[in-house]
Nucleic acid binder design. Structure first.
Lengths: 107, 107
DNA sequence: TAAATATGGAACCATTTGGTTGCCTATTGC
DNA sequence: GCAATAGGCAACCAAATGGTTCCATATTTA
């Protein structure tokens, strides 16, 4: 997995909203994903391309339509490998911070 | 929490590495965080500023030094509120994808 | 087959981003 | 007090980003 591609793909709110839409209903066409968005179709195409490059979305051509499917694997990998690393010591880090802030009061 | 600020802060590899460094040893000064990086101090300052705006890093001035502390709360919120939404239905979505891919073989 | 529909490609544009350099301020140690 | 150290500020720059418009291609459908 290209961690950097995934993080950068997730950095944009429009792309996260597209993932939300696919999460709500998987297998939508480009046209369906464009509905109600204040963006041209081409802008959406670009966003979907970035999501596809990051492997967050898979596609399948059906006739003249292109169906889009969310791929949760990279998100799970981010959660497992990267975020859990920080979660694991979350309380510890918080308590470190508290201690150091308390310490600063005495100075 | 400003979800967008957090995602955008995490989008850059240099910033994720800075978080890694703070995760390894909390409370480092700007100078320490610069050591061994192929970047000017000012570039690191900017990155830390972005992490601070996203509330991923807290700072504390001690004399002429500035100590940096990782704040795991926003990362946990991302994990809890956003990522878990996708994890929850991860297998389901995967099986949807499989089914649709299998379906396409017959066409 | 011709029109309508669904998508793709590429050029172009403004803004953001990640980085630099140069200089300034504040603290500390001799 | 003065030099060294730690950090801050601002201007500037190239490249990436998010968006547009215009046009082309492929598939349906009347």
């Amino acid at each position: 997995m290209d961690e950097d591609a995934v993080f950068r793909a997730l950095a944009d709110g429009s792309r996260r909203r597209l993932l939300d839409r696919l999460h709500a209903r998987n297998g939508q066409t480009l046209g369906e994903l464009c509905e109600g968005l204040e963006m041209t179709r081409q802008a959406v195409t670009k966003h979907l391309g970035i999501l596809e490059e990051a492997n967050l979305v898979s596609t399948r051509r059906q006739g003249r339509e292109k169906l889009h499917y969310i791929n949760p694997v990279p998100i799970n990998e981010i959660a497992d490998r990267w975020i859990s690393k920080f979660e694991r010591h979350a309380l510890e880090a918080l308590s470190d911070l508290k201690k150091s802030l308390e310490g600063s009061k005495d100075e």
